[in-house]
Nucleic acid binder design. Sequence first.
RNA 1: AGUCCUGUAGCUCAGUUGGUUAGAGCACUACACUGAUAAUGUAGGGGUCCGCAGUUCAAAUCUGCGCAGGACUACCA
Length: 1148
Amino acid sequence: MSAKFKEYKGLDLSQVNKDVLKEWEADQTFEKSVTTRKGNPTFVFYEGPPSANGMPGIHHVISRSLKDIVCRYKTQQGFEVKRKAGWDTHGLPVELGVEKSLGITKEDIGKKISVAEYNAACRKDVMKFTDKWEDLTHKMGYWVDMEDPYITYENKYIETLWYLLKELYKKGLLYKGFTIQPYSPAAGTGLSTHELNQPGCYRDVKDTTCTAQFKVVKDDKSEFLYQGVEEELFFLAWTTTPWTLPSNTALAVGPQVTYQKVKTFNPYTGKPAVVILAKDLVSAYFNPKNAELSFEDYQPGDKKIPFEILEEYTGKELEGVRYEQLIPWIKPDGDAFRVILGDYVTTEDGTGIVHIAPTFGADDDRVAKVAGIAPLILIDKDGKQNPMVDKTGKYFLIKDLDAAFVKDFVNLDTYLEYAGRFVKNDYDEKLTDKDPSLDVDIAVMLKLENKAFKVEKHTHNYPHCWRTDKPVLYYPLDSWFIKTTAVKDRMMELNKTINWKPESTGTGRFGKWLENLVDWNLSRSRYWGTPLPIWRTEDGKVEKCIGSVEELTAEINKAIEAGVMEKSPYGEFTPGDFSKENYEKVDLHRPYVDDIVLVSDDGEKMFREPDLIDVWFDSGAMPYAQMHYPFETSCDAGASQLVFPADFIAEGVDQTRGWFFTLHALGTMLFDSVAFKNIISNGLVLDKNGNKMSKRLGNAVDPFETIEKFGSDPLRWYMITNAQPWDNLKFDQNGIDEVKRKFFGTLYNTYSFFALYANVDGFTGKEEMVPVEERPEIDRWVISLLNTLIKDVTSSFEAYEPTKAGRAIQNFVTENLSNWYVRLNRKRFWGGDFSKDKLAAYQTLYTCLETVAMLSAPIAPFYMDQLYKDLKMVSSEEEVESVHLSKFPQADDSMIDTALEQRMLYAQDISSMVLALRRKESLKVRQPLQKIMIPILDTEFHDQVEKVKDLVLSEVNVKEMEFLTDTSGVLVKKIKPNFKALGPKYGKMMKQIAAFVNQMQQEDIAAIEKDGKVNADIDGQPVELSLEDVEIMSEDIPGWLVASEGRLTVAMDIHINEELKQEGIAREFVNRIQNIRKDSGFDVTDKIVLKIQKNDAINDAVINFKDYIAAQTLAEEINLADSCNETEGKLVEIDNNVETYICVSKKA
RNA sequence: AGUCCUGUAGCUCAGUUGGUUAGAGCACUACACUGAUAAUGUAGGGGUCCGCAGUUCAAAUCUGCGCAGGACUACCA
């Protein structure tokens, strides 16, 4: 007795999940899926490192499913796909978490707790959910190597980062500069965006604002502006921080904005003036009524000031025009006081002309740099560059400045009065709100000097320091940068070669980001992260960038020799020894690296720059650092070690400016290459109402619970097939349920059906194959569709479109395989001999199931593995291995028969129409009918339907099919213009042509069918319409019950004669008997004896269809009895008001 | 504020190069079927294809301007 196909009592996908996991573990299936592909072409995948200090959420399941699907697919395609897991361990979230759990703030670090202790806490804390992550990875079936992950805090990892930083340094791509950052003079510290986003930080404050007049210099550039202007000419610019006006070095205009030149008087001095401002804002400064006032009548001091609009200019025209320094206290060193373009300039408020102080505004700094405008910089007594305001928040005192600088650049006569003034009263303990602020004093001064056009109080939203409650200053702070702008063009070029899914993220979000690229600010003033490996002398003149531990220890030894250090903290380290033990002897984090003092060639002490680097550098360098490049491996060691660039990565779209960018930037700068060739960026997972999931709202879905409840397969299937991965997913558990029922339930039912009968018949799958061309039409049909499916699924996976692949599979399984193939073929599997036809049916169904398992395995790895093994366990001679080690199916084009697929479609449509007609007349399908009639449109259609005739007839229980040809003349036809064909030919005449066609009568239609053309007269123009220009279809057959859909029409003969009636009754009997068999718990193969109580309404039917009833119900005997004992028989209703007793007993 | 994504039935989503009856599943209603049965089929109701304007003989589809939701970046006169 050969093995049987396993039969199940029910489908519990959660249990399947667990069972299959055990098998994978025992068989080491994942390991084998990599090792068995050794020597084959590689497919390089990078795992973006998650941070293990947070719990994994449901949104992690989707990106990890995507990764897993592609990797499993490529494995099935024969590639060697190594997958190294990784952990992102540095960064602010970790530090904040630790601060919270220890109950400390940033200030306490180094005081209440040592840096060493703090970092030790971070190191421990960051891995606290590792086991949860591993558990989820395991349960969801994400295959990634977690035995040997890369961890960003490990010394080897950091060593590679240092190496890379040094490479950049050597290329001149790493430099020290400044950025404008939020800074709290009261606290003496910079603030991170995170700190600024604390609740309550942004507050409405009332400040003195000033619209200043910048006098236009009269020269060649401004000649066009001075045309017809006798008075002084000014640009108007508005600021909410008048204290920044002395630092003004440029004015920005919007290139597209329209500006107007307006003749008027200064409201404070009454002097005549011509001012320039944005057209849209003229009405904000000038009351339209005053346009009619006479200039002659105006007296200084009048409330109503006349004005007159003179000319209009675009921002672009104003570019390059020079103006005089507004407050000439300190001269800038370099080009300044010129109109530049700023893409961000709007006409929402102010004057549409923006005052630019590059030392106090991030945007200002950016546009000034682009335009080559110098910032206003002061040199202090240490020779360092500073903005006009010192770190306590006051204008620099002369004594704190470099004497030579003061002599050359500072106008002491005017500046002295203001030197030492705090820019906000809040910064000076001696001042209160009542005291005059610097803003007010400056405004007053400008008024007196005829330089202020409007001064007023204005309420605006301004950030405050969360610790001191005092306003924040935007202030230039030291920072290290990577000069990404130097490779901007190359990055854009390389980006075009990347296959982005969706494309718009690559061209739009990412592409636009690259276009507006600024240098990468690498500095972070924190504790737990990769230290910047740069040491500098105090004056900053000598600098060393360290690229390895070996180099560092060598430098330390030099320092010890020179006597600046006593002892090396890394004394035990042996250069060149890459063992784990050796690397455990060092710690490249703070505070240890801070304690290292190096020595310059001149014998000067060098200290480490205290910054840490951006954690995104950590993850962006992961392709190299995960292999300890170049210390233990090398990127150019040949194909065997080729792990760069990646063929594929996938993460959430929120990584666009994060990991995607840093990968790309480093790949470009270091190796002039893309870092990844294909990428899927997935969208967010929202709750079912479209809201963001959050713990606070309590709408977050726990992935563990979900997997426990449903199993991973339906979860993964749902996530992938419900919407394209890059669209946001509205996560609804009902959707998983639906997938479970609809897809997995149907597939399971199909398998169960197969297993049940295969086991009865002893089918094993080892039988000699019935050649496909010898199998019946319907078998070849489903095999044709199956091969089409293989093609579609393969190309979808190849195009990184798993959604399309999943949907195609689901459609095939539910619609074609289950609902059509199995349903129509059930009888072939029941009873009878094990004929060639039956064998063909088994083989066909088996092939479909096996192929579906292999096609679906990447998406639903658990159930498909079970299904595959259940099939193979019986059919395979060899030891059965996992579906994930199998080779992905190859489509056989010779099996695809589109004509066959088409005619099966006809069969399905005709059947459904007949069933609809039956329902309309309340004719049960069990009642056979004599005939249906189908008008034929052409010979091809005739041939096609002829071939599926029997299929249709048995499906709808009708005896014959008659074809109606045109000549019969009984058809009513319908004609429609074919817009697609006519449109390009006749264009504007379409409306009339359509009207002409629609009014054609039956005889007109007959004429065009006969002649193949018709001549029409459209507005005097002769138009010849051919058969291709119209669509003709049959609509009705008078006198018959007709259904019409598209080009198909079916008519049904509803007359029932005596024989048909009897057959119908026989079928009813079969149905009742089968039900009784089932209710009585008989086995499918049990033979029975039937006794039926006589009834005039049924006797003939039983006698005439005895053989039929016997065959269908496996009855050995059928007896009509005068009476059937009520206790042994069952009362059944055969037809309306027709009842009888049936007695079914098992044949002894 | 900028950039990008999304908007089609009550819900989740399809909808090819523009072509005239806008589809599927779920849900709802009715009916049927019953040796795959905690399934299945058939039919029905349900649409301002977010709005407005434009291009075109023809727009869910192309263009522009809005609206709503979301993401990222920024916080600026």
